[in-house]
Write a protein that binds this DNA or RNA. Structure first.
Lengths: 222, 222, 222, 222
DNA sequence: GATGAATGAGGATTCATTCAT
DNA sequence: TATGAATGAATCCTCATTCAT
């Protein structure tokens, strides 16, 4: 993938590669902005080049085609996402009680998405096989991680149900993310809190439902 | 739009327009399919015409441009949606206990969306001012209806919180809808049941949470 | 030309033909209006049909194509023009003194063009070989008629000069016609009078040009 | 329009834009030819590109649409025309006796139009608001300049008559221009001479009508 | 490496013309 | 015969991509 010039000489071209790397970052960052604003399909390479402040020719010096930009950008975001997931889905986190678990997982994930708003936008709408596949892998990975967590709270659930609930959780997360990304400051925090509430309620072992159980102080806000 | 001879005699111009009306439905249905698959922007009029089994010229006999197709389709769906909402958000429904209320509201709404899978796809991605505006109005209408319902279960919530929670509910609904639409048969029903569970848990008055309720037999309904 | 059903039966289809003739006139009149407003090339057959209050199919029942409409209309106007010219360029008119001659010729010609404003519009801009040819023939005919008149006032002019001056006269006539058609009432008459003045001055035998006639040595160069 | 980096350094961006500038001239020149031959409306951008020897895309690199080509071309011609008029309608010219005045004004104007045969073709038939407006302004300017000249020769004429005669003169000029442009060499000169003769006769103060000249009482009617 | 120009296939739209009813 | 629908080639224009400098 990339530009095929990965395995070249090492020492001399350093400076050149440095400039190139900068260009690539520049272009990817511009692409992220444009994709985010208009979606992948409606984003023209010329618009990306313009946003990056270079000529279209220059863009094609680093990427063979539009798809490659999305793939590289997607890959990069995906790598960071995986990395972040690796730091988040740790046994020490997953063993915590639910509220803390949720905080431990969601806070970094939300932060990541606020810093990389192009992530899901790109993952979703590209229609590029490569990306779609990687997205699906990421998705599957997330689902299975959620399943793992979930198993603790739903010991009797069958695998199908676990998957189903995990997909629901992921969906709830994504739709809440839209609201989070669309707001800022305290509002944003409030949405994050709502999301956590929903997930807590959804995941948490159902109260014994003792018909008259004399009271259940649900702490409603975080 | 059409032929301006709407208020004429009934019989004579009918036969002529019969074919046309059929074509229009055919085209709108084709457009719904194509929009649904590729999104509005990436859908070509030629593709729509092909899907409808007619030549591009025929399409333009009935619609002045691509936008008009989306507007007509959107308007039609919107009208049906409003109508459906009118029949669903009735006092007699809204006064029921939460589980029945959710059933009464969600079942028709889910059914509608299963029958018109293009609805949200179009509402979202068109970028057409007219549609976007109507979508926003619909959205606002739904939010305020949800707020009304919600007020019953959260008597102490301020207006900002009511709106926030309503938006969350709507988001949860939409993301679940994706899962519902992507599955079928029993699976589909299972997702619908999950959605109802989530909403019930989220909306229901917080149980007093006796810290000691030792067991958690949550009847995992569906 | 026409519709090829000229030599059909005579008695029975009379009524039918009558309706047909009416339709044809209706269409030609509509075409004249549309051509006049937008020029031949920019006029769509659909627009002509609409202006005539019929469907496009009906138009094609009487004319095989757009060109044929222009040809028929042009031919009709041309026929009337020729007829009018025949009544105007009579020896008894041409022998009059210049001012009366000009009146006798121009008045009907101007009147004709005011009644048929599509005439030159069509003649000019069609780009249709058939019409262009007929137009050229008409034009040539007019030129030679003007030459005939002119010879009386310019006995010494060679044939090339006669043709040249005749073309000038025709050009002056046409450009004045634009002004005449663009105005109405007294204004229109005033323009007609100006035109006559110009032509009189241009055609009339050069005043004896007494070389010293206090001031106006007109050298009729070329 | 172009690259917005007009005020940059001189050398570097020059070489790049040199080719572009040439292309633009090439395209405008091709457009002039095509417009001239077929009129604005009937000229296809593909035809212009073909005439310029480039692909349609190249045309659109420099002009956003067909109209812009006409506007740019029209503006360029208009600017040159205005410039030329400024050098022609000078007091020192306008005070000359009529024959010299006519020479001084017409010769450059005719020369300009021979070199820019697209001028009136474009001014007339574009239907583009911008151009039409500029054309009308040019037209009005010419008319008022002619009025100024005319006043000297028709001291008693009222303003309406002055305008009317000026419009006639402009019309005569334009129609003669067609003949001039359609011919070449000596023929062309001969037409120019005819035009001058007509205008001289039309503008020149009516000969004192010395009853002597046995016959040419010019009644300046209107 | 960078630039701006060049390319051409593809998409929206129009319109002369034909066809089924 | 009249109608309105159907057709498809031709237009304008865009954009991913390539090329010369």
């Amino acid at each position: 993938m990339k530009t095929a010039k990965t395995a070249k000489t090492a020492a001399a071209p350093r400076r050149r590669q440095a400039r190139g790397e900068r260009r690539i970052e520049q272009l990817l960052s511009a692409a992220a902005g444009v994709f985010c604003r208009s979606g992948y399909a409606a984003s023209s390479t010329n618009a990306i080049a313009r946003e990056a402040g270079v000529s279209p020719g220059t863009l094609y010096q680093f990427f063979p085609n539009k798809e490659a930009i999305a793939i590289e950008l997607g890959g990069q975001l995906l790598r960071r996402a995986h990395e972040m997931h690796g730091q988040v889905f740790l046994p020490e986190n997953l063993d915590k009680p639910l509220p803390e678990l949720i905080d431990a997982v969601l806070d970094p994930v939300i932060a990541f998405n606020c810093e990389n708003p192009a992530f899901w936008a790109l993952m979703h709408g590209s229609g590029i096989p490569g990306i779609t596949q990687e997205h699906d892998e990421l998705h599957a990975g997330l689902v299975s991680r959620i399943e793992v967590i979930l198993r603790r709270f739903r010991p009797d659930a069958g695998p199908a149900e676990l998957t189903r609930v995990s997909l629901m959780i992921l969906g709830i997360f994504k739709s809440s993310l839209d609201l989070i990304l669309a707001s800022e400051g305290a509002e944003r925090d409030a949405y994050a809190a709502e999301l956590k509430t929903v997930l807590r309620l959804y995941m948490e072992p159902a109260p014994t439902t003792t018909p008259l159980a004399p009271g259940h102080a649900r702490i409603h806000t975080p």
